[in-house]
Design a protein around this nucleic acid. Structure first.
Lengths: 159, 159
DNA sequence: CAGTTCACTTGTTAAAAGCAAGTAAGAACG
DNA sequence: CGTTCTTACTTGCTTTTAACAAGTGAACTG
């Protein structure tokens, strides 16, 4: 098992109460933020889409990260009403609130590292507030229609 | 060896050109950001101080993270002119530019997780721009006096 | 109802983290 | 000026986590 099962409430033995440490314990690995990026910026929502992302995550790691993000209340899995095999993962309010973090990380890297995707970066640089408002707007819209058809899962996880 | 040695310029085989991925590859682990926090917010600068931080990093991991952060140009080691044993680590301009990232991570965790240090959080919430300006100001001051006595190391690393 | 797609599992190997102990260069004290 | 202490590491070993490859079962598709 990749991660020991933990009571899904609050903080099961955190290293410290520092808020930065809390963020690091949730997001401080090589994949979680990339999954959130794919959902927030590219509109991805399924296992297969995440798998196909350029960086190439392994299936077991992806499964584990999706479970962790769900345990931390950052994403939620919804059964697709049109296809029983498919799970649609969506960002929660807590998840979409990570937009400023992602934005600052993108801006920092764009300034100090060699990176691609200048279009996105320029959007962020031009008016960060408006960029964030746009992300929020899209999320609001998706959530206004989505919960009607794809209802929350009863059984979140089998094991 | 904890990390394979890599040419210290630019991007030695990055997973993708996405700026977020660049940030994640540099900062996406359980310790780097905490070390940066200690330097930025608590004024720590020596190996011993980092070691004593609450989360309890191991000596070999700390050595490795300091080396990585230095390789990425986020910190710089300076020989202490008053004590030849001691190295003073200081944030570079690239390093201090991480202040907005840290701030957003702290604010996110403060809002969505159970955390301590409400004093710091309220400072950030009240006026984020002024908070960031304060960090920058302190860094400017420290750099105005520091480079005079503690000059840059000739031999950065032995191996 | 044979084949395919989707979201995982399982098994194995590689890499990284964590722990304990040791070390070398330098400083402080007597 | 030699013993002791401090700082910043190394080294060796064990545990945990990540990565890679292959397989599985339920659900859809032609």
């Amino acid at each position: 098992m990749l991660y020991k099962m933990q009571n899904r409430k609050s903080n099961p033995a955190r290293r410290s109460g520092c808020p930065l440490n809390a963020s690091v314990e949730v997001l401080g690995d090589r994949w979680s933020l990339l999954i959130i990026r794919d959902m927030m910026l590219r509109g991805f929502s399924t296992f297969k889409e995440f798998l196909g992302s350029y960086e190439g995550i392994a299936t077991n790691i992806l499964t584990d990260r999706l479970r962790r993000l769900e345990e931390h209340g950052i994403i939620q899995a919804h059964a697709d009403p049109a296809d029983g095999r498919r799970l649609n993962y969506r960002l929660t309010a807590k998840g979409i609130d990570l937009a400023p973090v992602l934005t600052e990380m993108v801006l920092w890297a764009a300034e100090h590292e060699e990176t691609d995707n200048q279009a996105l970066v320029q959007l962020m640089q031009k008016d960060r507030t408006e960029f964030l408002a746009g992300i929020r707007r899209r999320w609001d819209e998706e959530n206004r229609k989505a919960p009607k058809n794809g209802k929350k899962l009863q059984v979140v996880r089998s094991s």
